[in-house]
Simulated scan of single mutants.
Amino acid sequence: MTTEWAVVAAAEQFTLDPRNSGELTFTVSNPGNAPDTVVFDVAPGDGSQRAWFHVAEPQRVVPGQGSVSFLVKLAVPAGTPPRRYDMTGFAYSANTAPEESSRSSGRVTYEVRAVAPPRRTPWLWIAAAAALVLVVVAVGVVLLTRDGEPTPGEPRVVTAEAESLVAGAVVASPAKSGAKVEAQPNCCGVTWSGDQQLFFQGLAIGDKVTVTVQIPADGSWRFAAVRTTSLDYANTVFTIDGTQVGGTFLGFTPTVRKTELLDVGTVRLTKGPHQVTLLVVGKTQGTNRYFAGVDEIRFTEVVARAVAR
C-alpha cells in the first residue's frame, strides 16, 4: 500500500542573509499505521538549481502516525541575478518510484538581492579617513571627560510573560483539530516566571498560535524564549510576520522541564506591532498530542558598537 505522505513547510519563504543564504524546516508526516522509509528532496523553480540546496539526512524511517523534520539549507551563488525565486519540497517512499508516491509541499519563495562587490579605496582616501578617526577620537575623549555628560545607553529590551499574551492570541488549525491556547498555572513540579505559562494544545501538524508584540524602534533585534518540554510536547518553530526564525525546537522530554532563555535568532524589525507565531512541525514520540509551552519571550536590540583599533 502506498503511503500518502504529507509535506509542510514551516514558512512560505526563506529568510536570506546579506550573502543570500538561509534555511527552512520541512515536516513530512506518515498518516498510515505502518512505518515507512521516506526520501525527501527539493525541486528548484525556474532559474534556480538543485545544487543551491542541501538536505541533511534526506532518507529516514517514519513511524506510523509519526513525522520527521528536514532542515533545508539554501546558498545562492554570487552573481545570481537578483529577483524572486521559488522551490518546493517533496517526499516519496524509498521502496517505490518517486512518481508513484511523491507528495509536495506548497511553493516556497526567496528573494535574492544583489551583492555589491568590494570597492578598492584609494590610498589618499585611506589617509583622510585615518585623520578623521584621530579627530573623532580626540573629540570623544573631551566629551567623555566632561562632568555630567550621559554614558551611551544600553540596548533596549522587550520582555513579555507569554501567558500575558494569551488574551489576544489567535489559534489556527488547517486540519480543524480543535487546537486551543490557555494560561497554565505552575504544574508538575515546574515553577514558571509569573507562576504561569502560555500552554498551546495543538492536535495536528500545522496547528499554530500567534501573538502580537510591540517593537519600540526600527532595527535588528535578537529574539529569545524560555520554553517548556514534556512527554506530549511537539517539535515547533517560531515565525515572525510569516518568516521562520531559527531552527526546530524539539519539545519531547520524559518529564516536564523548563529551559533557560534560549536564543532563537536575529531579525530586522520596524517600529510597531509584529506577529510571533509558534508552529507545530512534528513530534518525536508516539502520541496524538502536539502540545507546546512558552514561559517568556524577549527581544533585545542589537546595537552596533565601535571597535577600538
Rank of each mutant, 00 (worst) to 15 (best):
V72W: 06
Q244L: 02
G140I: 06
T253S: 15
F249Q: 09
M1I: 13
A129T: 07
V264P: 02
G272N: 02
W125M: 03
V8G: 14
P117Q: 14
V209K: 04
V157T: 02
V307A: 03
A51K: 13
A204L: 11
L203P: 03
V61N: 07
E296L: 15
V267L: 09
R83M: 09
A11C: 13
K258Q: 14
D41I: 03
T109V: 11
P118N: 05
T27Q: 12
Q214K: 01
L132K: 00
R309P: 00
G64H: 04
Y85L: 02
E99P: 06
E163P: 06
A306T: 02
R222H: 13
V108F: 07
L198Q: 08
V141G: 07
R103L: 10
S105A: 08
R60N: 08
A75G: 03
T210L: 14
V190C: 06
P63W: 11
S67A: 15
A179S: 10
V209C: 06
I126A: 09
T270A: 00
F26G: 02
Q49V: 09
C188K: 15
K271R: 01
T300Y: 00
C187G: 03
Q65M: 08
I240Q: 01
G265H: 07
A234H: 08
W125P: 01
Q49T: 10
A225Q: 07
V181R: 11
L124R: 14
T300K: 00
G286L: 14
D207C: 06
T37Y: 11
P63T: 14
Y110H: 10
S102C: 02
